[in-house]
């Protein structure tokens, strides 16, 4: 087979997420939609946030100014799906890898729970199943069959709703298409967002929404902890000057340099 067949499916795919911080109202619909989509368990007491298991977390970030000059933004934080994923490099079980379309993927049962990846991830995107997953009684009926539930003792994280890609791709194949249309595959969080602050799409397609947004908003785009060089696939947009230094722990000079380089 080889070349002839390979041409049948376009591999010019790299999926990225763009989150417009200025448009996010911190409502939390994305987190709930994500939890519902990915069969995330709920324990009765989840107020210890270090033990709480979420794929997507919304951070509330203030400008640290006193009342009434305080300002607040909400920052949703999924897995960054880095191009050079630190978590993958440290995994001793080869239970996680980075795939061609840009998603850091994982086989849950293969993980033996050493949690090196959690220690390595600078974004705290990976979470560990400290307990057997529990669900409110009866809600197992609402399970999404496209995502396997995870067992105690394994690490898990946001998958950019990879199962949606799998099914979108199957549909495209069945219809004889060789690539996905823009917007055909988007994760549950982006789908649910009521203010449409989350954009998702193929950055290799110059006409996709994300490519357009990233071009248009170039001076305001940044990624978290870019200086670590892990090349995250999640881009943030904020037009407020104070946001990036507060989010990113960059020094003021670094920020200025960055701003200049972008202009």
């Amino acid at each position: 087979m080889g070349h002839e067949e390979k041409e049948n499916w376009s591999h010019a795919e790299k999926y990225v997420m763009v989150i417009d911080i200025d448009k996010c109202t911190g409502c939390g619909a994305c987190v709930v939609a994500c939890s519902q989509e990915n069969n995330i368990p709920v324990r009765t007491d989840e107020t210890d946030k270090y033990m709480s298991l979420n794929w997507l977390v919304i951070y509330r970030v203030t400008n640290a100014q006193p009342f009434p000059k305080t300002k607040v933004v909400y920052v949703p934080r999924p897995c960054m799906h880095c191009d050079d994923p630190i978590c993958v490099h440290v995994c001793p079980a080869s239970a996680t890898d980075k795939d061609a379309k840009g998603i850091v993927s994982q086989i849950y049962p293969r993980c033996f729970g050493c949690r090196y990846c959690m220690a390595a991830c600078p974004y705290h995107a990976r979470v560990f199943n400290w307990y057997d997953p529990v669900y409110p009684k009866g809600t197992e009926r609402g399970f999404n069959p496209d995502v396997s539930t995870r067992m105690r003792g394994v690490v898990e994280k946001c998958s950019f709703c990879n199962h949606r890609y799998q099914h979108a791709r199957d549909k495209a194949i069945a219809e004889g298409r060789v690539c996905l249309e823009d917007g055909e595959y988007i994760p549950a969080c982006a789908e649910a967002c009521p203010t449409k602050a989350i954009y998702f799409g193929n950055i290799k397609d110059p006409n996709s929404q994300v490519s357009r947004i990233l071009r248009e908003e170039r001076p305001h785009v940044f990624r978290l902890l870019e200086k670590y060089g892990s090349e995250p696939s999640v881009y943030y947009i904020s037009r407020q000057d104070w946001v990036r230094p507060r989010l990113d722990w960059v020094l003021e000079e670094e920020h200025k340099k960055y701003k200049n380089s972008m202009k």
């Binding site: 087979m1 080889g2 067949e5 390979k6 239970a95 996680t96 890898d97 980075k98 795939d99 061609a100 998603i103 993927s105 994982q106 086989i107 849950y108 293969r110 496209d146 995502v147 396997s148 998958s159 990879n162 199962h163 799998q166």
Partner: peptide, 13 residues
């Protein structure tokens, strides 16, 4: 053998 992708999420969910 057929040079198909072999990533975790190619076949896992």
């Amino acid at each position: 053998k057929y040079d198909a992708p072999n990533y975790c999420f190619t076949c896992h969910k």
